[in-house]
Design a protein around this nucleic acid. Structure first.
Lengths: 212, 212, 212, 212
DNA sequence: CGATAAACGAGACGGTACGTCTGGTCTTGTG
DNA sequence: CACAAGACCAGACGTACCGTCTCGTTTATCG
């Protein structure tokens, strides 16, 4: 998870004052500060610059848009941190991962993610950047575990991995974007159990799979 | 499906020049015109007023925001039109409805919907308005059919109707918002079949349910 | 001496909120205020807007440049006011007029005039505007009196009126621009007497011509 | 005519890399290049640095302002070159000198001079520098010849030398600054003859004085 | 010959102001 | 009263230069 949605990724050594690392961090952290208070839309580059004690030009030198700054800030600070275990039954892995994700999305992180997605609608380069830097990585991790699960469950073998991922994860984003149905304790508890039931899997009270 | 996300819903009868219907229509159709060319974000109230040959103040008098105008335009013109049949097997109904929806979302209508959702992220009143005027209606229609289907399929009875709806429809919105995976012919053909397979249903080449 | 270095000179009657006269005056007087403290160069449109309690856009709507605003402010407030008498001997008229001008140019008014001229060097439209609205008028008044004087003095008849005007008035501007030689009491007293001596005219202690 | 409106006039001998003469020349000639295309106002230090292939800091190390660089470039390259003859009648000397000056001021040199004067209005140190390095020298040369002329003409003896200089030279600057009346062939031919006529001097067709 | 020290290029940086734009409000006159 | 027209305030936009700074790299002089 490397950072920098910058114009020049490489420091381009050779003459010139080197880029100030502290300035870069000040910008990203000022951005997160502001995001705690208001939406991406209502944040201005000017406000970021002011809070970071930095010139607007410096921000424009390294990022092409407000949303790019947000994505960088988002990525560097592990705003969403959902590790995937590989030492347990894949269904349990998925369950834990899903619940962790949903929990995080129920708060501030969800607000940021949904707002980045919103920005992406009118600026496709933002959409692409976020997809490539955030989405693809986590999709790859999930796909691996889903494949393991499919190998164990004959009835899932006819169904596409992508479809299975979509079934599990899309509803979280759906709720995020529509604001319909809260991502609350009940949803976090019940929704994945319903899905796994459809797959023919049940969990006991300890959260362990009860293969039927 | 009555329109008017207006400030004053009622014409405030009693004296004075009545609201001009032609002006209202001019505004909505100018809005759709502009939406054909650019995103909601990049459209301005001023541009709508200019194209409609109308004063900015008139727009502000009746709508509170750009997005409200868009929602009105969207609703009045049946931008998304997906009737639900009740005279056939509920699974067939759902399949047809889903495919119609996906098809429409693959084009201009999808762009508008995703952009309204985007606007909704930074303006929760927009989100609520769109949800109440667009989303709830269609969810109710779908829920009814889903309930019919659950009545016929024992294995679905343990699963929440909301979950089933989410499984079917969320992935469409997911693709819309992330721009990941096109809503293309292949997706429209295969995705619902995968889902119904999970429900234990198959379709023959005529699109009729083959209850297993 | 009518004012308005505006883009549209005419109010463009027919619909629309009329231009606010108080706003216009606030801008011009804020400009004069600032000119009392600093040079045209160092004044900013932003500062004028702020001091006038007015939006920048309003200034840009009516004036094309900072210097245009200054010229308007300068003209409307009769910053330089040097009436020319016609009821006395033309030489006395000229003497009084010249001394009044020099006196005014020795102070704040001179600073403004020299700075407008300076602005005019890099923006020829400013130069032309100032020339046409300020310079031509006063030159016409002076020329008339100079012509009267020439009619009385045979030795001046061979010399161009423009040349005579130049001889009298250029040195004032010369001192203004070069900052060489102050426009002080001594200069104001002696210089015109020297010139008139060259014309063959002397003045007695009451300031009356002593035709030799 | 040694140059250097520099901060440190002395090379500060003792250790360190000596100042690069080629860099200095590159800066001055880049400046003149740019002056051929645009006004001092619109030229930027950045543009000079770029064109000269030099760092901005190097310019700031040796000059305190853009105008200082221009003055240096102006002086070193003898942009205005008007030698004064001492072997002929002082009136002829003056006539020739004046015409040479006016001729040069009618072109590019006049543009530069007027623009330096303009810069001097908002930066008095520029005004002083230009006056001391350019103006005083030539005024001294002219004064000497004027004094010679006064010695020969009884009627000029009562009139100040400074006044006589002003009469002759101010109108040129007047036209430069106001842009009123071109410095053209007619002006160059007639104006000085008018002045000398006032002094009681005429010239024959060979340009020789005809003392009346 | 090596140490020292200023000159120099490159270019990042905090600033300031630019002139433009949009949002939302207000103020006219007309129908 | 609705409405068109459009002036107006507010304030962010992204850009351009400013003058300063921090680098690494010359290029001289002096010990």
């Amino acid at each position: 998870m490397q950072a920098a949605a910058t114009i020049r990724t490489e420091p381009v050594r050779g003459g010139g004052r080197p880029r100030s690392e502290s300035t870069r961090r000040a910008i990203l952290s000022a951005t997160l500060d502001l995001l705690r208070e208001e939406s991406i839309q209502s944040i201005t580059i000017e406000a970021i610059a002011k809070r970071a004690g930095v010139s607007k030009a410096t921000i424009y030198r390294w990022w092409q848009s407000k949303a790019s700054v947000v994505i960088d800030a988002f990525m560097e600070n592990h705003i969403v941190h959902t590790p995937m275990r590989h030492d347990i039954h894949p269904a349990e892995s998925l369950l834990q991962h899903w619940r962790l994700l949903a929990e995080q999305y129920s708060g501030w992180a969800g607000q940021i993610v949904s707002q980045i997605l919103a920005e992406g609608q009118s600026d496709k380069s933002i959409q692409r950047e976020f997809r490539e830097r955030f989405y693809y990585g986590r999709r790859a991790v999930v796909r691996e575990v889903i494949d393991n699960l499919r190998a164990r469950l004959p009835k899932l073998q006819e169904i596409d991995s992508e479809v299975l991922m979509d079934i599990l994860y899309s509803p979280v984003y759906m709720r995020l974007m529509w604001g319909y149905g809260p991502i609350d304790a009940k949803f976090i508890r019940d929704f994945p159990l319903n899905i796994f039931l459809l797959f023919g899997l049940e969990f006991d009270s300890d959260g362990h799979v009860v293969e039927g």
